[in-house]
Write a protein that binds this DNA or RNA. Sequence first.
DNA 1: GCATAATTAAAACAATTGTTTCCAACTGTG
DNA 2: CACAGTTGGAAACAATTGTTTTAATTATGC
Lengths: 229, 229
Amino acid sequence: MAQTDTVTRILDTAEVLFAERGFAETSLRNITGKAKVNLAAVNYHFGSKKALIQAVFARYLDPFSERFHNAIDELEATYGEKVIPLEVLLETMARTVLEVPAERHSLKVFMRLLGLAYSQAQGHLRRYIQEQYGTVFTRFVELVRQATPELPDAERFWRLHFVLGTVIFTFSGLDALRDISEKDYGEHVSVRNLVKRLRPVVVAAMQAPLPDLDGQDTDKTVTVLTGAG
Amino acid sequence: MAQTDTVTRILDTAEVLFAERGFAETSLRNITGKAKVNLAAVNYHFGSKKALIQAVFARYLDPFSERFHNAIDELEATYGEKVIPLEVLLETMARTVLEVPAERHSLKVFMRLLGLAYSQAQGHLRRYIQEQYGTVFTRFVELVRQATPELPDAERFWRLHFVLGTVIFTFSGLDALRDISEKDYGEHVSVRNLVKRLRPVVVAAMQAPLPDLDGQDTDKTVTVLTGAG
DNA sequence: GCATAATTAAAACAATTGTTTCCAACTGTG
DNA sequence: CACAGTTGGAAACAATTGTTTTAATTATGC
């Protein structure tokens, strides 16, 4: 058994189990058992369970980070001094996200891991991702800023997280949602199909009219909402 | 110490710890220690940790379910045979969600618990919530269907989950996001403020143009996206 | 082909988990 | 006051956790 084989086998098994059950709910014995490697192999090759978790993320985020930087480089070279349209930025992000796991594993696992990174506020993980891949996200946000000059900075910040929530939540719970969709509406949705459904919704969300933040909401009447129809 | 005091103290402490760290990461000793009750009290009063988790949810979802049914009853009485507008439905849902935890605890905890219920796919939890509170959601969805006749059923299904993802994701990670927002943009966002920001985005998402689902995406050009600008 | 390092294997480790047991303390009722 | 049943408290339970240790095996370099 080659040296890399054990490492790869652990990573392959771990990412699936993590995505299915979460980090705390997945024991090393569970991983090593399913991967048919020795229990001590995890601590030998990775050092600790925390380090294994980070390694699982790195295997997705490293290629993503590199590809996305390259994609943005190309865009900037193409558009020169001109502002890159929001739709192009979103499309580039989507394409990069879709490309990375396509090579090896499923997008679902990747998204589910991202969702876990947020929801299971494992302190070390959030810190690791922020330190390791913060610059990519910062660069993207800056371009989005230039593409949406009409949005106040704070508003853009929140809207980006709104759509991030939509995407992560959707793909993270993909299996369960797909089952319901298939049972109730008889149609099987592919990832590509779902991306197509997401497109107009995400764009509409980013381009929605600005909220009325003045007035200390003295009343909860529904009239406030109707302004967007 | 009255009989209910211990139970309440356990629930109050458990919901906060669950919301902060998740279910598996929160031990009974952690809960009982912080709640200053005996370790065995949990198993005595609730039977098991699983049952405790369900009880924590029930304390939020029971009042929510009742209030929401009442609110819908009122709406149906008011509108008679007429269709209830989408904005009114969303507003009613939002108001009910905001009302329930306001009485006792924080909305953040409530949302975070909902997020965990989805992300930490504890089988028993999802089943419990589905069995216990499925009818409320079904009733709501049916009204949304009448309010959005232009949406295909499957499309409406997905869009509801898209916005559900936005809301849960946002409030679930509220603390972390708020910290960033406050640090980078110097403005402290309240829950009410955030609800105001969500309003136009959610409405725009539901009313976004329909996706182009034909054509087996032969190309990944950005032109597909621009149709929504 | 041998010496040395790298990897795998098996076992034990200490710590923590949810749960149960057993007994004391309390509560309310006759 | 006495006695039933309920609740609280400390300890122990068995199971599982991540990690470490020790020995065997395999690969590598000279």
